[in-house]
């Protein structure tokens, strides 16, 4: 078992997503440190992919830009190694199947263990294909995070039953990106989930404001925010760390007011 459970032991969790190497690796490091300082409970680090099919335009652009600067899987591993000198909260990678597969599944996942990456989120690996990575994940104690979508319906039970670390609940149809409104009946989905597992559930996709984060943590164990943070990075570039820090603080305060 990984350390992911620690992220959910101090009230509702706030989970920021950061695309590694956007706009550059030094900024990524500083942003992670600011996010942790301002209350982030778990960090989701995106390893860029050339064709991120589950992402909306904001994170797509960040992926392309980061790759143009020469970011590679090895450079991301080096960055995490360095961050682990002073960052002790759980961290997970979010990337696409081919990034892991091409690196060598065993080599990738054993490296995750070595640099204390607690889990991997792979949006193009659904329940039916999880054996692609699960045996190595189990061997090295890295959680393969499962996702549940608004369309999962009869699939929720089997996914929840075998889920590890935390469950990533996708708030809406479509790809990542900020949304003014989330209309899915998430409460109903989480009620089904609860019958099959006791691991934490965090909601992601479309969340950007403290109000949304608060509402999402009222019905789950935490909120995941990606595009809204990447927008701050796009606006402020290497000056972003302080702005991301302020944003994380406001989001953490919002979810923290919700009772455990």
């Amino acid at each position: 078992m990984s350390n992911i459970h620690c992220a959910f032991e101090h009230g509702k969790a706030f989970i920021p997503f950061i695309t590694c190497g956007y706009p550059d690796i030094e900024t990524t490091k500083a942003v992670v440190r600011e996010a942790v300082k301002n209350g982030a409970d778990l960090i989701e680090l995106g390893i860029p992919f050339s064709d991120p099919t589950a992402e909306g335009v904001v994170i797509q652009s960040a992926n392309y830009s980061a790759l143009k600067t020469g970011i590679t899987t090895d450079k991301v591993f080096d960055m995490v190694r360095e961050l682990r000198n002073d960052i002790h909260i759980p961290m997970v990678f979010m990337t696409y199947a081919n990034v892991i597969f091409s690196y060598g599944t065993k080599r990738f996942i054993s490296t995750c263990r070595d640099i204390q990456i607690d889990g991997i989120i792979v949006p193009d690996v659904p329940f039916e294909e999880k054996d692609e990575f699960l045996p190595e994940c189990k061997r090295y104690g890295v959680d393969l995070i499962s996702m549940i979508a608004p369309t999962s319906e009869d699939r929720i039970a089997k996914i929840a039953h075998e889920a590890e670390g935390f469950l990533y609940i996708v708030s809406s149809l479509g790809v990542t990106g900020t949304r003014s409104e989330i209309t899915t009946d998430l409460k109903a989905i989480i009620n089904v989930v609860r019958k099959h597992t006791s691991i934490p559930c965090a909601i992601g996709f479309g969340i950007s404001t403290p109000e949304q984060a608060k509402r999402m943590s009222e019905i789950s164990d935490g909120a995941i925010v990606g595009s809204a943070i990447i927008k701050i990075l796009a606006e402020y570039g290497s000056d972003s760390p302080v702005h991301v820090g302020e944003y994380v603080r406001s989001m953490k305060n919002a979810v923290h007011t919700v009772r455990h």
Partner: peptide, 21 residues
């Protein structure tokens, strides 16, 4: 059953699309 041709094929898609396929 899972649409494999030797090691090739499969269904590497987001969960959102699984019920559609």
């Amino acid at each position: 059953k899972k649409g494999r041709f030797g090691v090739h094929g499969g269904q590497y898609i987001p969960e959102t699309l699984m019920n559609a396929v």
